[in-house]
Design a protein around this nucleic acid. Structure first.
Lengths: 339, 339
DNA sequence: CTACTCCGTGAAAGCGCTTTCCGTATCGCT
DNA sequence: AGCGATACGGAAAGCGCTTTCACGGAGTAG
């Protein structure tokens, strides 16, 4: 059944040690002739090394773990693509877990990945800005790093570890500028979960942007969706009720913005003629909907790439935080306010 | 640094064996008092077992491997969600790999996952209907199953293994019926890569559907995209050149259909007034675009769930193939032909 | 009170691999 | 020819854990 290195060695008529060296092309050279014999034997028996045994012996695993909110959310799937792209270069195997922003689940996954001694652990999404959460997460992470692995966070940095974060504040600020310049004054905001750091940053940025034009954003005009399409639609209903004459809606994620678009369409409100809509992230979806979405481009793929690179090539205790620029992309969903 | 079970045992003043039993709640009971001591010691040292050592000792890994075409393609991310949902129930860790339909990459991943002795291996996407490909894939798979793992394919069954496949033929046939009934006669088709089995099935189904109404589909009217948005757009250009007076386009995947929609919009062709468009899959995106897409619903999440269930609970050599029904979903992108 | 069965515990044998440490054979040099 | 230096193969010691096996003490029955 399970063919082991021992059998390969026997078949090739060499010792275990030699067989191992031949297959790994180790420092220590092996006579070409022997190497060939071993390779042939391995091939013939269709030997596949046991990664666990290797991990144990080498105490290194070539594994990386990723915990995201939800793989099927385009924001995160772009990120995982980025991660995979560097992982496949470096020969690492990627384990992806979806936490659905459930702290308990998330902790469980961190522990599981710790057990697997992944060399790098990437956490994206979640990032609750909650005392007890970050407390226990921090200790959890600590017990991970104790094994020599490195963590990298994407989009948050409230817990010790490398981090790569998009310029949420700056991007959102530009959104504020844009809307202000277009003459919008009554603007509804569909934010993310209030406890999530990136929600906060984006909201704050947007506020700042409006403030730059002397505008205020009453907090009743901010509704929080949960970064989901339906959340966006729900928030839109609430907003419309509260502020029937609004002329713009700023959704702090594209997925939610799509929900906004849907809700508006259902009510026969035309975008951008009656209401302008902006999103955030620039997921592929943003350019597929009608009208195409004005949004802030977040380099998701790059975020993933950088995060893994940091974690893989980091050393020492020095933690690096990288900020990636965002930039506004103007499409069809926004226009000058005409009331 | 790395705290081992031995240290926990020492700290608790028990033997290695007892410590192990206490932690695993093994058959062989342990005196409650001792168990507590061990648990406390483990907690205090923040001990996390080494999964590799466990895997080696138990020769079982609680790991499952998944190879898809591309995680960020919504079709596959829905599938992986399904997979993860059952994996998290059964406590399995999921490793996800994107092959980008590259046979070489795919093989490499199969081998890698074999090395990790995953208990279940799910393959979705690809499925080239190519002699030499399936040949070598089959032997690769064989060397995997030799270790006691099980494979499950999603959407193909040209290689021995469990499989769960959507009713591609049936669904596409309904699409044929729909378009025929709406009076369309000049219909362009945007198919998937010709070598991929599901592309073929869908194309065949569509042909059958038209045939049921006495209509023929000249093969020049079939252009193949590559299941990508841009592929869909490109194919549309070709089709339009070849068949300027077409009244409907059938895209054999939603993502391509979105490309079709975009291309049409660019040319100022209105959907569905001038041209009807249908897709396939019913990814979330399909109901986000404008007009919303008439398509065939493929139970992707379910596909993932079933595949892993099959692989996890299968036994013996008997291979099970499950067919999941598809069903047509009529939305806004189709209308009666009015020429 | 002896004989016998349970049951909790520990010692030790692996699981499949890597790698250090030796031993031997080969080579180049004086 | 004799010497050290070099190179390569093999034996064996782990890596961290599970599990079989053996053991001794406690409990039950005769």
């Amino acid at each position: 059944m399970a063919v082991t290195l021992a059998e390969v060695a026997r078949k090739a008529g060499v010792s275990l040690a030699t067989a191992s060296r031949a297959l790994n092309g180790s420092k220590r050279a092996v006579t070409p002739e022997l190497r060939e014999r071993v390779l042939a034997a391995a091939e013939e028996l269709s030997y596949v090394p046991n990664a666990h045994a290797q991990a144990l012996a080498r105490s290194t695993t070539a594994l990386v773990g990723v915990i995201v909110h939800d793989v099927s959310d385009p924001y995160f799937s772009e990120i995982t693509r980025g991660i995979q792209s560097v992982a496949s270069e470096s020969g690492h195997l990627v384990s992806i877990c979806s936490s659905f922003r459930d702290p308990v689940r998330e902790m469980a996954y961190v522990r599981l990945l710790t057990a697997h001694r992944v060399e790098a652990l990437i956490l994206a999404g979640s990032g609750l800005d909650d005392r007890s959460y970050s407390q226990s997460m921090a200790t959890q992470i600590e017990s991970f790093t104790a094994f020599g692995g490195r963590v990298a966070f994407i989009g948050r940095h409230n817990i010790p570890g490398d981090a790569v974060i998009p310029d949420n504040v700056g991007g959102a600020r530009l959104l504020g500028h844009l809307l202000a310049e277009l003459g919008h004054r009554r603007i509804g905001v569909v934010g993310g979960p209030p406890l999530v750091t990136s929600s906060r940053d984006r909201l704050e940025g947007f506020r700042l942007g409006l403030a730059d034009y002397g505008l205020e954003l009453p907090s009743e005009w901010v509704r929080s969706g949960d970064f989901s399409r339906d959340g966006g639609a729900r928030a839109t209903s609430e907003l419309l009720e509260l502020l029937p004459d609004l002329t713009a809606i700023c959704a702090l994620s594209d997925v939610m913005a799509v929900g906004v678009l849907t809700a508006l369409k259902e009510r026969g409100i035309s975008v951008p003629d009656q209401v302008s809509v902006v999103g955030f992230d620039d997921v592929p979806l943003a350019s597929d909907v009608t009208p195409t979405l004005t949004t802030v481009h977040v380099p998701m793929f790059e975020l993933g790439k950088r995060a893994l690179s940091l974690a893989l090539h980091g050393e020492g205790d020095e933690l690096r935080v990288e900020h990636l620029p965002t930039q506004i992309v103007i499409r069809q969903s926004t226009s000058r306010c005409n009331v």
